[in-house]
Amino acid sequence: MHGLIISEEVSERIKKADGVLAFLTPRDAMVSGKYTTHQWVRDELVTAINHRIPSVEIREKTVDTQGGIVGDRQRIDFDLDNKAKLLVELVKMLSRWRRNLKSRRLFLMPRDIVQDARRFINSENLKCTYQFMTGSKESEIYKAKPFKYGQGLCVDIYNVPSEDSLVEVTITGPQFEWSSDYESVQFLSINLQKI
């Protein structure tokens, strides 16, 4: 960050991050026997939360609970004398994050959809959503942004529950709507029908 304004650059890097792990470690002793922590780390965590970046507070057990916007979120507590337990918790959490952060790219078929949707690609008028089905249980509905790819359109989907899940994609514009049936998340393309 040589020559850059550190607070601005840190904020920009957080906004581009896949996730934030905020380690709150002891800093200054308090009368209560607890410790304060680094304000920078708390600010970085709040920045991640405000920009909806996946984030988790990892707080050493002697650090004071200071409340605020991060006060009621699930966190990982740890003991400096038992770092092995912390590493196990981090591995579990990161494996869940990896599944949710890694995207799947779907090519939208048939090519007729390109004629309807492509001119609205950078417009608020084009909406794209997707939903998973695992077993007989449907997930919440997620938003996506289609993008031009070669002569067609693609969409990146996230939060894939499992490899045997199905996905349904819907695209709506000013005077059209295309929707797929549920298809395997393992397919590289998804077929939509005009409604």
Rank of each mutant, 00 (worst) to 15 (best):
Q193C: 09
N159S: 06
K15E: 13
Y35W: 11
S180P: 12
V114E: 10
P110R: 09
G173D: 02
G67M: 06
S139V: 04
N50G: 12
H51Y: 13
F187A: 12
G67R: 08
Q66P: 02
V41S: 14
S165V: 07
I49C: 01
V185W: 11
E177N: 07
G33P: 11
M1W: 04
S162T: 13
V114S: 02
R13L: 15
I6N: 01
T37E: 08
K34H: 10
N82C: 12
V114M: 03
T170R: 14
L192N: 00
T25W: 04
P110K: 04
V91G: 03
I5V: 14
F132K: 03
V70Y: 00
F187P: 01
A144M: 08
E138Q: 13
D18S: 11
T62H: 03
R13V: 05
Y142I: 03
E177Q: 14
K85Q: 10
V46S: 09
K143D: 07
G152V: 11
K16F: 00
I5C: 12
I171D: 06
I14M: 02
G19D: 06
E124S: 14
P161A: 05
E183V: 08
Y142R: 11
R27N: 10
M30S: 00
E168F: 09
D181K: 06
G68A: 02
S136D: 12
V88M: 09
S7W: 06
S180L: 09
E89F: 00
R75Y: 02
D116S: 02
R111L: 13
R73M: 12
E124R: 10
A84Y: 01
V91P: 00
D181N: 15
D116N: 10
L4N: 07
Q151K: 14
R119K: 15
K85S: 14
P110Y: 11
D81R: 11
P174Q: 07
T47A: 08
D116P: 01
M133S: 10
I14S: 04
T36M: 01
D72Y: 10
N191P: 02
I121M: 08
L45W: 09
S7A: 06
A29M: 14
L126M: 15
W97S: 12
F176Q: 01
L101T: 01
N125C: 02
L24I: 07
D181I: 01
